[in-house]
Structure formats: structure tokens, C-alpha cells
Amino acid sequence: MSAIRIHPPTTALTISIKHLTCNPNNLNLFSTNSRNFKRSGFRRNLTPIAMSSNPLEVCAKSSITVPNRLGDCPFTQRVLLTLEEKHLPYNLKLIDLANKPEWFLSISPEGKVPIVKLDDKWIADSDVITQTVEEKFPEPPLLTPPEKASIGSKIFSTYIGFLKSKDPNDGKEEALLNELSAFNDYIKENGPFINGKDISGADLSLGPKLYHLEIALGHYKQWSVPDSLPHLKTYMKTVFSLESFTKTMPLTEDVIEGWRPKVMG
């Protein structure tokens, strides 16, 4: 079971996860035995892994709607998904980004999350963090082949463009639909995941962004992924139902409130 410890002086929540286990104003666009896990109809064969001797330290955005809950940063969820899929234990410290504690600013002067402590060094940026984790803990592998790493990479930026758009005729919706359609066609021929039958880092990066897309566009635009893109919808359902995803996903209310400044601004 997870042990939860609250530290009032730092306004941070620490969660020790034992089992295998954003800055909202600056969204950057750019051991155990082998076993089988059954998830959404897919079975993954997991190889023995070299466990981290000590839990990793992870600083993440806290919920702005419910106390002591993980917040809505998709880049942080990407990092947590990576740790979960690699079954690495970690201590999660939740940071109130509206009232950052001094100890946090001392390790993250720009006040950004996620930030992870690896080998006594704090590392920022989800790209750098996940790459470092992959190098240090290569099993099970999550590396995406270079030729597939950019699949779906433009979806998030076009989603933001459409979400912020005030003009229904500016082509932002069409641009998003073009990206989603291209991804739908790719998954149709190459799925169920971006790297075929095996989940990879590309899925762990794209999944949280699609989750935000679904919630925010549904709330602010009354828009949903069209039924004409069935393979994309199946992909989203598969990723969102992963145990690692349900364990790390933000509350719907936090996603909505997290995007409000972007929409209303």
C-alpha cells in the first residue's frame, strides 16, 4: 500500500509508492519476477528489471480543485507514466504552483515541474527526464524507434491553436482534424500503439495530451473526436485504460481549470 505523508511547512504532499511502481503558464510544445499484465485486451511480457535501490524524488503540480491530489500537467504525467511502466518506486511531492515553497525554488529556480532527482541531481524537462530514466533503467524498454518518434507530435500544438481560437473560420479546427486523421490512418496500419504491439515513450507522451484534448475541447468547444476516426478513438480508450494511466491521470476539473487562462485570455 502507498504511504501518504503531508508536510505542512512545505505545502507539499509526499507519496511513497512501493509497488512496481507545469507550469500552467508555460506549456512547452515542443527485483521482481517476470509476469504478464493484462490490460484492455493486450498482454505485455515484462522482463526482470533492475529496481532503483531508493525511491526517486518527483516534484509535480498539485491539484487546484482538491487538496492533496495530483494536478493537471501533461508533461508531469508523462514522467510518472514512464516510472510506472518501468515499475520504479518514487516519492511524489505535490507543489502548489501559486505558492511555491522556498525549498522547491532552490532546486527549480524557474518554478517549473516536473523535476526529478536522479543520482543526487535534480533534472528538469520531461524530454530530458524520460531519456535519462531510459538510459539508467533500460528494462522494460520504452524507447521509440527514431523513425516513429515524431508520429502525432503536431497534435498538441494544433489542439492548443483550436482551443484558443475565437474565429470558427480561421482553419484551426481543420488543422487539428488533419493531424488527428493522419494519426488515425497511421494507427490503423501500424497499431495498436505507435510502435506496434508494444507501448513506448511516444505513447506515454501523446496519451496525456490527448486526454487534455478530449476534456478541454469537450468543455470549452462542445467538440469531440469524430466517429470517422475510429482507430484514434480506440487508441485513446486503450491508453486511457492502462493501469499506469488511471493511476496518474488528473481530475477532470483540474484539466478544465488548468486551461481556463489559455481559453479566456
Rank of each mutant, 00 (worst) to 15 (best):
T132V: 10
C22R: 13
K172P: 07
K61M: 10
T158N: 14
K262R: 14
M264R: 14
E110W: 08
D227L: 09
G152E: 02
T10H: 08
I49L: 09
S63Y: 01
G41E: 10
I6Q: 12
D185C: 13
R78A: 12
I215S: 04
K38E: 11
T248E: 04
L94G: 03
E257D: 11
L251K: 09
G71I: 07
D227E: 14
L251Q: 06
K112G: 03
W259C: 13
D120I: 05
S40E: 14
I15G: 05
L94Q: 03
P67H: 03
A216Y: 03
P114A: 02
V113R: 00
A149K: 14
H212C: 06
S224R: 15
K164A: 01
I215Q: 10
V263N: 02
S108A: 09
D227V: 09
P261W: 02
P74G: 06
L217N: 10
G111L: 01
R35G: 08
F245R: 11
E174R: 13
S153R: 11
M51Y: 08
L217R: 01
E253Y: 00
L56E: 00
L242A: 06
M1F: 09
A149I: 12
K172S: 15
S52G: 07
T11V: 00
G265C: 04
S62G: 13
T65A: 07
A175I: 08
D96K: 00
Y235H: 04
D72Y: 11
L118R: 07
D167C: 07
L81A: 04
T10V: 06
C59Q: 00
K154M: 13
T130M: 10
S165E: 02
L213G: 01
L20F: 07
L29W: 13
K237R: 14
S244C: 07
F137I: 00
K117R: 13
T21E: 14
D185G: 13
S31Y: 13
N68R: 02
L229S: 08
E134P: 01
M236E: 13
E85C: 03
G161Q: 08
T130L: 01
S53A: 10
A12P: 00
Y235F: 08
H7E: 10
P114Y: 07
